[in-house]
Design a protein around this nucleic acid. Sequence first.
DNA 1: AAGCCGAATGAACAAACGTGCAGGGGGAGA
DNA 2: TCTCCCCCTGCACGTTTGTTCATTCGGCTT
Lengths: 349, 349
Amino acid sequence: MVVTDAAGPTAGHELPTGKTRDALRAAHLYYLQDLTMDAIAKELHTSRSSVSRLLSHARATGLVEISIHSPLDLPSRLEQDILERHEVSAHVVPVPDHASDVDRLERVALSAARILTRFIDSNQTIGVAWGSTMSAMSRHLAPKATHNSEIVQLNGAGNLRTTGILYASELLRRFGDAFGARVQQFPVPAFFDDPATKEAFWRERSTKRLLDLQASMDVAIFGIGSPFAEVPSHVYQGGYLERADYQALSRDGVVGDVATVFYRADGSTDGIPLNSRATGPDFGVLRRAPRRICVVSGQAKLPGLTGALAAGLITDLIVDEGTARRLVEDSAVEVGTPPERSTGTAMES
Amino acid sequence: MVVTDAAGPTAGHELPTGKTRDALRAAHLYYLQDLTMDAIAKELHTSRSSVSRLLSHARATGLVEISIHSPLDLPSRLEQDILERHEVSAHVVPVPDHASDVDRLERVALSAARILTRFIDSNQTIGVAWGSTMSAMSRHLAPKATHNSEIVQLNGAGNLRTTGILYASELLRRFGDAFGARVQQFPVPAFFDDPATKEAFWRERSTKRLLDLQASMDVAIFGIGSPFAEVPSHVYQGGYLERADYQALSRDGVVGDVATVFYRADGSTDGIPLNSRATGPDFGVLRRAPRRICVVSGQAKLPGLTGALAAGLITDLIVDEGTARRLVEDSAVEVGTPPERSTGTAMES
DNA sequence: AAGCCGAATGAACAAACGTGCAGGGGGAGA
DNA sequence: TCTCCCCCTGCACGTTTGTTCATTCGGCTT
């Protein structure tokens, strides 16, 4: 009976319907005026159900943003400790200690996706790695409209068994969709077989263009790979590396990787042969990005995380509570602060 | 059995309990991780009810902030029109046309209180007027922690019958509480009987200090008084003015007031005798504040609003939909744009 | 030491909300 | 013009959330 909204004629213009308009109005009434969905339904001449759906839509498309501010005076002891010891702004994700690794990853990724919003803006070049953490994140991104931003793939994703490209491109696409940004793929394998091939490739103009983009990133987002953890990261399951490669990594004292670039506990990367075949950005390049966001879930990644911190790769860290606690405890010992009992959040039973 | 949180001994420090800590954690879990309150209750070892209460607390104290962004491409036709015609950034509050004036005011005030948050920050001097609109707003402010900010009363509040001070101080106090700001009262009557008394008072050092504060405001917040509307504003009911005063105002062509300073339709204030007895800031002073937020509800205030716009008093306008529509229609005629049919939001039946 | 008061708790209820499902409207194509 | 298909709608149900109430807990006074 009543047409939903403006824009009469057939389709044709940018947005298909006035649905977003309604969603916006519903969101105003719900979140700013505290009306019940019932009441909103009456004002919009529709049913409660539809209002519920409109509000879902509004949240899902980022019309509504919900953010949480610590009251500045009590910024989670853990976060403060991490800031002091590593000069990194931390976001600790509360997760019960008994949660499974899968749960933990999922929950950290969900939180991270929502927190990420505040770092993304217009006219930015955003570097994105891939892996199980990034993948989980990509599935939960809170959309935010930006102009003229660009998603740049940080490292190649091809491997021996499948192209892997599809997986990575799907991941990138999700980032692009969420922020209305162009996506720049990096169509190379994760590792070349021959360093010479890589170098040849790196001289190609199309490759150079991409490397230039990477060098001018405003934000980089990545997880941490941990080659020797019980729960291996995506890279280590997917057939990207061979047995001999692992042995080499082990010999070299590697503790982790960021965007398929490997490093030792002290953050050094020199003399790790595999890196000359890897496609991720040199840490020097990576560090040029003013904001470098690292998402970590699970204590298995602690050595990797510590190494990445030592390498100065991280400016913003999103990490689960248990891992954060261990991180602080470890470095407390290191620095000489007495390893005082855990500060005792309510979760500690 | 399980103590709620850290901070062992008796009271004594700033915050009474670790309640805020729990609220923060609950908010994380609820808004960032989409857990149900049930699940959160288990993680926190408490009951659902308590979690519900914790979340209420989190929202009420501003730990959680919910904001709404128009997707930049469709910023409510009305808001855009107002911006173009009056160079004022508008926030149109959706309210059904059939709502009562009381409802309308309440809803605009609620929205305004929530929107206000984004304008308030640390190290600011914030001027606040009073009246029914401001009072309604004060009851709904979303708290936000700031340092070193100051609330300054814009105009006196004493009248013939009661001191009125109590009313105004309560209002100011609410602003101060919400933002953790100091409150500077202005203990003078709304109108002096004799201009000479006012001038004498204005020479007092204590008064001067306050006037200086006003002159260095970063933000001013005020409603609009409409002396001749059917639903008179607070000033006009409270016994602040006498019959003769009204007649004078009428003779002078006054259409409204801002912080008890009266003006005509063209925004002029010169030659309105009552102003020399009023205690609100001269418009010249007011206009020095870089951000001047005006909250208006109800079409009765249209003439007043138009005058305030003409006087250039407003940089940010929060207004109900019906009034916004009328405002645009009126100025459309004025400017010469054909008075096209209302653009037809869903509410128009 | 007993008693009082206010704040905080959890159970139970009532309200509000989300979602699967069947039905209907409208546009594209035949 | 008819048909098909997809998307949207509202209903009904089960779940989730808010709130009231009786009770307990802890601190402080008498």
